[in-house]
């Protein structure tokens, strides 16, 4: 086996697919001190963990919108009070949802190709 294929094999093995949840999709849009959430290299906070531990009184991060797509495609959407469809934040969140869906489809296709 070539060095290249060994490398690919280790990359595939390192993906830890068993630990990844593809059944649901969570998309979160926040404002405020976003650096505390998004700038930490290496450590990735799951949207759902942030929501579950969210306490508006104790944090300088504000949840603007949250979308949860269930395995059966049921969708739950949350928007902060006062956000309207014409608001820019609403549009940003909608784009993030669309992009996450497109990316999810891509990753599932990738996995299907690799493991089939």
């Amino acid at each position: 086996m070539s060095a290249l294929s060994k490398k690919f094999e280790s990359i595939v093995n390192g993906m830890n697919l068993a630990l990844v949840d593809f059944t649901t999709l969570d998309v979160l849009t926040i404002s405020g001190n976003i650096k505390s959430i998004l700038s930490k290299e290496g450590k990735i906070i799951k949207p759902v963990d942030l929501i579950l531990n969210y306490d508006a009184e104790k944090t300088d991060v504000r949840v603007e919108a949250f979308t949860h797509v269930d395995f059966d495609q049921d969708v739950i959407q949350f928007y902060r009070d006062g956000i309207q469809e014409e608001d820019l934040t609403y549009k940003l969140h909608q784009q993030a949802v669309e992009s996450s869906k497109a990316a999810r489809l891509g990753v599932l296709t990738f996995i299907k190709e690799v493991v089939s």
């Binding site: 849009t29 926040i30 820019l88």
Partner: peptide
Amino acid sequence: DCTTRFDFDMDSITGSPEALTENSLKEHR
């Protein structure tokens, strides 16, 4: 002005300023 971070399973968190502008939205979109 904005950042989006995807997990490996493509859950995402997007951070934006509280006063998002048209230009910032366009650029991030």
